[in-house]
Design a protein around this nucleic acid. Structure first.
Lengths: 187, 187
DNA sequence: CTGCGTTTTTGACTATTGTCAAAAACGGGC
DNA sequence: GCCCGTTTTTGACAATAGTCAAAAACGCAG
């Protein structure tokens, strides 16, 4: 829990009361490797904070699993579309390692917004940061070659390459596993 | 101005007082075709609402202009990265048609957050919606073929194709103009 | 209607990546 | 250390998209 609150300070400094209120709404979860946090088709009603472990979000495209993001320590995790719209999730989220998470329900969170303005502010700021992160990812994904994308991943997120099977990384980069293997051979 | 407030109701219903406070912070701008709303290298300190017209965001990659998004009526426009981080914008935003916009400065907006909790809520909700919109765009861009992306654009946003030169659309889809021309010929 | 600059299309060729299949390397359990 | 299932690499070929250059179509001023 300390880790979560330490991380929140990167976004906004909460008052003691807000922290206590927030703390009461979180529940700890421990899940083994390969377990699902969210399954396609179910509505996701929680936001998670990943304290320890790593996981991937993926969806099905013509029977193929497309991994479109990874989550690591200190990431906020949810199926955002489902969480926001209350519609069934189109993606699944699966643990790639055994992990520890903190969960907060959407009702609890929106309840807090009314009682603690600062918590809503915190969440707004988190969204802003996540938005620009996604924007960057979008530009990289669409307008760079596979090799450039891999090299950038190597530089910026070497932890991904160390902890994640090649097949998932290839999918994440939008290329086939064979192509990624050849890129690696060349470097 | 009516149009702006009518549009805001899609996100959150503001009280009369909040509306008045917000209204006072907006300034109208009119710009001719090809004018720049934001130029690469300058810090963007405003959020805009596009009442009438259309524009594009683009950046330079090895001397080439990469158009990565379009804005149309009722869109909120800014260089999000610059607006949030206060760093110089990496992109430029240019009018493709003469347009009318409403501008609000970042200071004015953050000032409103303190005085009107609901305005911060509204903005949080706007960010949520824009986030999931971007997520969708990301998935489409990375994991579908050029033809699929063009067909989806045709179905979901025919207005883009009607109002925007082919070269910009090709860039937006992440393909060369020639390839887009060939896709069109085939359909 | 004509001419001219811009935008779009077409052609020929090249580079990149995908697909399918098989081989090699890796890693944990015994 | 050995076996077996999984992951990664390699090979051959096909499909997709990019590049450069030229032609055609378009749009507007005069």
């Amino acid at each position: 829990m300390d880790q979560l609150f330490a991380h929140l300070k990167n976004f906004y400094h909460l008052s003691r009361e807000a922290q206590i209120a927030l703390q009461e709404c979180f529940q700890q979860i421990t899940l083994p490797r390969n377990e699902f946090l969210i399954r396609e088709g179910k509505t996701c009603r929680h936001m998670f904070f990943l304290e320890q472990g790593c996981l991937r979000g993926y969806y099905n495209l013509d029977g193929k699993e497309i991994t479109h993001w990874f989550g690591f320590e200190n990431d906020f995790i949810t199926s955002f579309h489902s969480f926001i719209t209350h519609q069934p999730a189109v993606e699944s989220i699966q643990l790639m390692e055994a992990g520890t998470l903190w969960a907060i329900s959407k009702e609890a969170l929106t309840g807090l917004y009314d009682r603690h303005h600062e918590i809503e502010r915190l969440v707004r700021i988190v969204y802003e940061k996540y938005y620009i992160r996604l924007e960057e990812r979008y530009v990289n994904a669409q307008f760079k070659t596979a090799t450039e994308r891999y090299e950038e991943l190597l530089q910026q997120s070497p932890h991904i390459i160390e902890r994640v099977p090649l097949g998932y990384i290839a999918s994440y980069l939008g290329i086939s596993q064979e192509t990624l293997s050849r890129i690696r051979a060349r470097l």
